[in-house]
Every structure is written in structure tokens, then in C-alpha cells.
């Protein structure tokens, strides 16, 4: 079995440009995902059974089906309907870029909502009772006590979720986007050297994951620095 390093060097710049799109997709999707996750997470712990069931159905669907199916549903599935094609959303949905972001954001939104729910339920009872004793309203309680604490508790799990999303973003290549994997597949269509090019792409993914893992640990340390003061 032969390994052509020259190919890897020749095509590395193009792979890097694909990696740029990968990072962009992840950044936008995770921001939109958080905007979905916060209300859904709050609905999951709400007192209203309707809100609880609605949010549960959403979370169940997006955590229970493969991301690949979700992407196909958004990209190819929605365009099956005349109504979608005539709607105001079509200028966005006709672009694979936005379809990928919609699918990724809905997917990560469901996972993040569950992380948030778990973290909110893990906030110590005593802190909530203390805040209540101060006379905080429910809204204030969530804003000042539960959410800030939940972010600290859920942060490591959220770090893992972002890593999962980086890996999931490879599926953007199935809807014509030239992300890192899409670029690799296009290069392979010319060079017929899948092993070399995929391994090179794999290394770039590893580098992205490594940098992000580091960043998440940094932020985690920063979020929890008040704990260090306590122990000091």
C-alpha cells in the first residue's frame, strides 16, 4: 500500500479553505442552537404540561434520529412542498448553507436544551430557597441564580456537545457544501486517493477539536475561579 505525501502537500491549502467553512458553520449553528436551547430548556422544567410536552417532543425527535436524516429532511424534504417554495423563507432555504445551519442548530439546540435542563435541576436546593427567602420573583431567580449556576454546572457537557457538532458538520458535504469533508471528497474525485486526502482532513479536524477543547477548559477555569477563592 502506497502513501503519496506529495498529494497531501499539494492539496493542503484547499483543505484549509474547506476548514474555514467548517468553522463558520459550527460557530453560527452553535449560537443559533443556544438561542433555541434556552427557551426549550426552560419549557422542559416549566409547570405547564403543554409546554413540557411540546419541548419533550422536539427534543425526542432531534435526539432520536440521525443528523444525516435531519439534513436531508431540511434540504431535500422541505423543497418537496410547493408552499415552502413560495414562502418568504425560500430565499434562505434554497441555499445549502442556511439549510445546514438550520439542521445543525435544531440538532444541537435539542442536545443543549437537555444539558441545560439537567444542569438547572442540579442547582442546589438551598441556593434556590435562600433566593426565595430574599423575596426574589421567579424571573429574577432564574436570571440571577439558576441560569448562571446551571451554565457553570453544564459547561463541561456543553464542551462535549460542541465537539460532537464539529464531527457532525462533516455531513454538510452531503448537501453540496464544500466544507472540509466536502472539499476532501471533491479533491478525491480528481485524485482517486481517498486514504491520503481523508487522513489529511482528519488531522485538520483533530487540530480544530484540540484547540476548542483547550478553549473550553480555559473558560471553565474562568467560570469557576470564584470556587478557587473559596478554597484558598
Amino acid at each position: 500500500m502506497s502513501f503519496d505525501l506529495g498529494l497531501v502537500i499539494e492539496y493542503f491549502p484547499r483543505l484549509l479553505s474547506g476548514a474555514g467553512l467548517t468553522v463558520e458553520l459550527i460557530a453560527i449553528s452553535s449560537l443559533v442552537g443556544i438561542c433555541i436551547a434556552v427557551p426549550v430548556g426552560l419549557m422542559r422544567v416549566s409547570a405547564s404540561p403543554t409546554l413540557r410536552n411540546l419541548s419533550l417532543a422536539y427534543v425526542f425527535f432531534f435526539r432520536g434520529t440521525p443528523l444525516l436524516i435531519q439534513i436531508f429532511l431540511v434540504y431535500y424534504g422541505l423543497s418537496q412542498f410547493e408552499a415552502v417554495r413560495n414562502s418568504v423563507l425560500w430565499p434562505f432555504l434554497r441555499q445549502p448553507y442556511w439549510c445546514a445551519i438550520v439542521a445543525f442548530a435544531l440538532n444541537t439546540g435539542a442536545y443543549t436544551a437537555e444539558i441545560l435542563r439537567g444542569a438547572m435541576q442540579a442547582v442546589p436546593r438551598g441556593e434556590i430557597e435562600a433566593a426565595r427567602a430574599f423575596g426574589m420573583s421567579t424571573a429574577l431567580l432564574f436570571r440571577r441564580v439558576i441560569l448562571p449556576r446551571a451554565v457553570r454546572i453544564g459547561w463541561p457537557a456543553y464542551g462535549n456537545e460542541v465537539i460532537f457538532m464539529i464531527k457532525g458538520s462533516a455531513l454538510a458535504s452531503t448537501i453540496t457544501l464544500l466544507d472540509l469533508t466536502g472539499m476532501a471528497r471533491t479533491i478525491i474525485a480528481k485524485t482517486y486517493a481517498p486514504v491520503e486526502i481523508f487522513l489529511a482532513a482528519g488531522l485538520i479536524y483533530l487540530a480544530i477539536v484540540f484547540v476548542l477543547t483547550r478553549a473550553f477548559r480555559r473558560i471553565e477555569a474562568r467560570l469557576n475561579r470564584y470556587l478557587l477563592h473559596e478554597s484558598a
Partner: peptide, 12 residues
Amino acid sequence: LRGIPELLIVLV
């Protein structure tokens, strides 16, 4: 194995 997309691992 935890840092590379599953899709790439399957293909490789």
C-alpha cells in the same frame, strides 16, 4: 477516534 468525524472514519 473521538476527534475525527465518524463519516471520515467510515470512509477511511
